[in-house]
Design a protein around this nucleic acid. Structure first.
Lengths: 196, 196
DNA sequence: TGTACATCAGTGAACGCGCGTTCACTGATGTAC
DNA sequence: TGTACATCAGTGAACGCGCGTTCACTGATGTAC
C-alpha cells in the first residue's frame, strides 16, 4: 500500500512476485517467464526472490496454485449466478471454465502443464487449490445420476468436453469464438438426468 | 543406411534431424529440445542444421509437420481397421487420436502448441499435414447428420471430447487409463444419427 | 521512551552454463568437357 | 575414363545473451530490557 519508496523491505514481496509472474505469463507467454523478469517487474533485484522461494520451480508452483484459486473462483461465481436447476448449474460452471481459459491463456496452460504434477507429493498450497477446483467440478456433476458403466464416467466426459473445447479455442481462433458454453453440450445435456 | 563413416555429407541430414527432434521430445520433453542436442544426437556439429533449416523455429515447424503426419496416419489406420458403420469408424478414428497422444506426449503437445499457428501463413508442409489430419476428423464426422443449430456443431463437440480426454489423461495419470476410446462417448454416440 | 542487538529481506557482483547464430574454412560430391 | 572446377554440406571456433544460483554485504525491522 504505502511502501512505494522504502528501498529494502518490500513488505509483500511473495504475493507480488506471484502476481508479476501471472502478468508476464499473459503478456509474454510461458517462454518469457524467468525469475529475473519477475523480479525486475516487481522492482527488486533478481536475487531477492530466493528469500521467498526455494528456486524457480517453487515459484512456478506458487503461481500455479494462485492460478487454480482464480480458476476455481471463476467457476464458482458463474455457477452460483446460474439458475438452480442442475443443467444450468453445470452450464454456469463450464462458462467459468471457458472464461478462465480464454482470459488467462498461458496461465491455463501452466496449471494444466504436465510437469507440475497434481497428485504427486507437491506443495500443499498447490494441492489444496487444485483440489478445490476439481471438487467444484465433481460436485456439480454429482447433481446428475452417475454413469451405470463407469464410476466417474459422466464426470470425465463432461470434463473432457469442456477442457477440450477450451483448449481448441485457444489453439484455433477460428473455432466459433462466439458460441457460448452451451454449444458443445448440445447433445449431452438432455441425456443427463438430474438426481432425485 | 550405409553412410555411417563418411565424415562429411551425412546424406539424409534433414529428415534425420527431424526424427532426432522427435526422439528427444519423447525422452526429455519440450524443455530439453535444443538445436545443439538435436545435432549432437545425429552425430553432427551444432552448426550443421543451419544448412537445412532457416533457424530453430523452422526446425520446430518441420518437426510439428512430421508429427501431424504420424498423427493422421494413426487415425486413418485405426479408422480403416474398424467396422464400416459410422459409429465404429468414428470410434476407430478417436482410438488413433488417443493412441497418438498417449504414445507421443510431448509431440502431441507441440503440434497443438499455440505458438505454431495452424492457420497463419506458415510453412506449407506444415499446413498440408495439419490439414490432412483435420480433414480426416471432418470427413468422419460427416458420416453423421450435422447439427441443426451450428454449422460444425457436432464436429467441434466430438473433437473437443476426444482432445480433452487425451489431454486430461496425459495430465492426470489417475484418470482411468484402462478405459478405451468409447468411454467418453458413452452418451454421445447413440445421439448421432448416421446419414442416409 | 530509549538503547542494544538479533533477525529479516533486500543489494549487487560474480559464477558457470547452455543456448542460437555467424563465419571462414574444407572435404566430398557431381557436372562439363 | 580422366581431369578441372563449381557447388554443396559439413567443421570448429567464436560471439554475445539471458538464465538460475551463490555469496558476502547491509540497511530496515522488531524485540528485550
Amino acid at each position: 500500500m504505502t511502501s512505494e519508496n522504502t528501498p529494502h523491505h518490500h513488505g509483500n514481496l511473495r504475493p507480488a512476485l506471484i502476481q508479476a509472474g501471472i502478468d508476464i505469463l499473459e503478456t509474454e507467454g510461458t517462454k518469457g517467464l524467468s525469475l529475473r523478469k519477475i523480479a525486475t517487474r516487481v522492482g527488486v533485484t533478481h536475487a531477492a526472490p530466493a528469500h521467498h522461494f526455494k528456486g524457480k520451480a517453487a515459484l512456478l508452483v506458487a503461481i500455479a496454485a494462485k492460478g487454480f484459486q482464480v480458476f476455481a473462483d471463476l467457476m464458482e461465481k458463474n455457477r452460483d449466478a446460474a439458475p438452480k436447476d442442475p443443467q444450468n448449474q453445470l452450464l454456469g460452471l463450464c462458462q467459468g471454465y471457458l472464461q478462465f481459459a480464454a482470459e488467462n491463456e498461458a496461465l491455463f496452460e501452466l496449471i494444466f502443464s504436465t510437469d507440475i504434477k497434481p497428485h504427486a507429493n507437491v506443495d500443499e498450497d498447490f494441492r489444496k487449490s487444485a483440489n478445490r477446483a476439481f471438487r467444484l467440478l465433481e460436485d456439480t456433476c454429482a447433481l446428475f445420476e452417475p454413469s451405470p458403466k463407469h464410476s466417474q464416467g459422466h464426470e470425465i466426459m463432461i470434463w473432457s468436453l469442456v477442457h477440450g473445447y477450451a483448449s481448441l479455442r485457444a489453439y484455433n481462433k477460428l473455432i466459433s469464438p462466439e458460441d457460448g458454453a452451451a454449444m458443445p453440450f448440445e447433445l449431452i445435456l438432455p441425456q443427463l438426468t438430474p438426481k432425485k
